[in-house]
């Protein structure tokens, strides 16, 4: 039982990291960024390339190496996100939402098959495996590496939440989500803040990608597709556009899958996830923490 909870929370924290970028971008420009899952994939590949370049250095202290690679990858995927926004989405600002959505699907394919061209179609194996000694905590088997990854996820999420609720930048992001034109009149450089939002969201997805590479050990150029959909599901469950809600949604989705897989069978895992997506979209489209805005005019 506690093992199921732990597994759920662990996988859920990956989902949450990816879902946050989804949710932030949706919140600020109302775009379902279908290329977002591919930034997770890009993160995994960039981590793979960096670990390869570091060669022998890696073996001795894999967790430290992974940590350095994690930071560098976050910068790399963050910048990729900024470029995608600049090239693919910004020119369409003010265009019908469907055009933007189709562009996002195009960006997703471009990233997937671009990676395929560069890195080849075959799955790659991470040089760093994180399957060390296990601890027993309340009856669950937990590895140190899992704990470390979980801790990194939590730190990233807490930092993001502080950024959004406490800082000037975060306030600007929340304001743009509500009324970008009014933001211009506050002196906010809306394009710049949107760029930064893409940077942060993409960096988080990249971080999740490296962590997933290190944890599962195998990566391929289509790995972002399903996680993108799962992250979208997590965001919808929690309330898309709502940051704490999205974190909750990610963890919840992880738990649902973990329990569902255990009681019904592994082949039903995705059915579970997307079944819940449909359930939420019909019953509570605003998600658990998303609220309808009441406004007096």
């Amino acid at each position: 039982m506690s093992q199921l909870i732990w597994n759920g929370l662990f996988v859920g924290s990956f989902y949450a990291l990816v879902a946050l970028g989804y949710s932030m971008v949706y919140g600020i420009i109302k775009l379902l960024n279908f290329a977002h899952g591919d930034l997770y994939m890009l993160g995994a590949f960039s981590g793979f390339a960096m670990l390869g370049a570091m060669g022998g250095l890696v073996k001795s202290s894999s967790l430290v190496a992974l940590f350095v690679v994690l930071i560098l990858t976050m910068v790399a995927t963050g910048l990729s996100g900024v470029v995608i926004e600049r090239v693919a989405y910004r020119p369409l600002r003010g265009a019908p939402r469907l055009s933007l959505l189709i562009t996002a699907v195009g960006a997703s394919f471009a990233l997937e098959y671009g990676t395929r061209i560069v890195a080849g179609p075959n799955p790659k194996v991470y040089q760093v495996r994180l399957d060390g000694t296990a601890l027993h905590v309340l009856g669950a088997l937990i590895t140190w590496q899992q704990l470390a990854l979980m801790a990194v996820s939590i730190v990233l999420m807490v930092a993001l939440n502080l950024l959004i609720t406490r800082t000037r930048q975060g306030r600007a992001m929340r304001a743009i989500a509500l009324d970008p034109k009014a933001c211009l009149l506050m002196g906010i450089d809306v394009d710049k803040v949107i760029s930064r939002t893409f940077f942060i969201g993409s960096a988080l997805a990249g971080a999740a990608g490296v962590m997933a590479g290190g944890y599962y050990g195998k990566i391929d150029f289509l790995m972002g597709f399903i996680i993108g959909l799962k992250a979208f599901t997590a965001a919808v469950i929690g309330g898309i556009g709502n940051i704490p809600g999205t974190m909750l949604g990610g963890l919840l989705l992880g738990l649902l899958e973990s329990f569902g897989t255990h009681f019904v069978g592994g082949q039903w895992r995705d059915v579970f996830a997307f079944g819940f997506l449909i359930l939420f979209l019909t019953v509570r489209p605003t998600g658990l923490l998303g609220e309808r805005v009441t406004e007096r005019v």
């Binding site: 000037r168 306030r171 600007a172 929340r174 304001a175 509500l178 009324d179 034109k181 009014a182 933001c183 009149l185 506050m186 002196g187 906010i188 805005v293 406004e295």
Partner: peptide
Amino acid sequence: RRVFSTLTVHDNLLLGGYL
């Protein structure tokens, strides 16, 4: 008026001083 409807009065004022 274009007040930021789900932000607090205080946050609205702070945004006015974004620069």
